[in-house]
């Protein structure tokens, strides 16, 4: 929706604009991809954007596994939601950068960790191509229509705050990424009819029982923390965890973070209050 709001903003500011999501299996909190093009002439290309002028990263944990600067045009800029200063970003190459702690801003203004609207404010500030008024128009159009005016207003406030808080600088090179990250077999190599037993590939397991190849811990904003002294081993957290992130120990349970999406159910069902949720800062994200 933020990509759409950006397109509306660009349109409001007099540009020709087009936006579309990469239609995948979007779940709340899951990594997604969306594209916006805007320019002075009518836009005809309807493909994904492979060589962007700007890359907006809504979740800093993604830079651990994804070379977000792949394809960035010379002179382009990366805009990241992080607590770091822009000069402290280390990515695959040197590039102009802008940073803002959009998560804190979003939590403050919208009571949710949905940072996309805050990042629009950051985009406006960092690029100078879109006005804050355009961003507001985009948010009201896209979010106000689908949700409510009240929610849209809160998002506008978040965008404004992010606009003010965005800092500019230049990030450093040095981070190294694996060349390919996805199993892309040829038509001849692909299991016939996609009927797939458990199969090991250079990119991890696929087929039956392969979902653990997919670390969902990066989705998390808040993480559960166990106070072992308080745990009565009632196992309700183990029972309810939708992501199987809690194991049974001898006397108490154990929380694992590779797959924990931070839903907070373990803390909610814990009668002795042995589990609490706390905001996770970037350094602690496990890849």
């Amino acid at each position: 929706m933020a990509a759409q709001a950006l397109a509306v903003a660009a349109s409001h500011d007099g540009y020709s604009a087009i936006a579309f999501p990469f239609f995948g299996a979007e779940r709340r909190g899951a990594p997604v991809l969306a594209f916006t093009r805007f320019g002075e002439e009518r836009l005809r290309v309807r493909t994904q954007v492979y060589e962007p002028h700007f890359v907006v990263v809504l979740d800093e944990s993604l830079v651990e596994t994804v070379d977000v600067l792949a394809g960035l045009r010379p002179g382009g800029m990366v805009i990241v939601n992080t607590t770091r200063a822009p000069d402290r970003l280390v990515l695959s190459k040197k590039a102009k950068s802008a940073t803002v702690d959009a998560t804190t801003i979003a939590l403050k203004h919208t009571k949710q960790a949905a940072v996309n609207t805050a990042m629009l404010g950051a985009f406006a500030k960092a690029t100078g191509l879109i006005t804050l008024e355009g961003v507001e128009a985009g948010i009201m159009e896209v979010f106000g229509r689908r949700l409510s005016k009240e929610i849209a207003d809160r998002n506008v406030a978040a965008a404004r705050a992010a606009y003010e808080a965005t800092r500019l600088g230049e990030g450093d090179s040095g981070r190294v990424y694996a060349k390919a990250t996805k199993w892309l077999p040829t038509a001849q190599e692909l299991p016939p009819g996609l009927a797939t037993p458990p199969m090991e590939t250079p990119f991890g397991r696929v087929g039956v029982g392969s979902s653990p190849s997919n670390l969902t811990g990066g989705w998390r904003v808040n993480k559960p923390v166990l106070d072992g002294a308080e745990c009565t081993n009632c196992l309700l957290c183990w029972f309810y965890c939708p992501d199987g992130s809690i194991t049974r120990g001898e006397k108490i349970v154990e929380i694992h973070y590779e797959y924990c999406k931070g839903c907070g159910i373990c803390a909610a069902v814990c009668a002795p209050k042995a589990i609490h949720m706390e905001r996770e800062i970037e350094e602690e994200v496990k890849a």
Binding site: A25, R27, R28, G29, A30, G209, S210, S211, P212, S213, N214, L215, T216, W219, R220, C234, L235, L236, W238, F239, P242, D243, G244, S245, T247, R248, E258, Y259, K261, G262, C263, G264, I265
Partner: peptide
């Protein structure tokens, strides 16, 4: 709950939304 096996047959790494009742 205590008698349930430790073994899972529906595994972590699925992409349900946080807090999904269906999962």
């Amino acid at each position: 709950v205590k008698d349930l096996p430790r073994e899972d047959y529906f595994l972590s790494g699925h992409t349900a939304c946080p807090g999904c009742g269906g999962a």
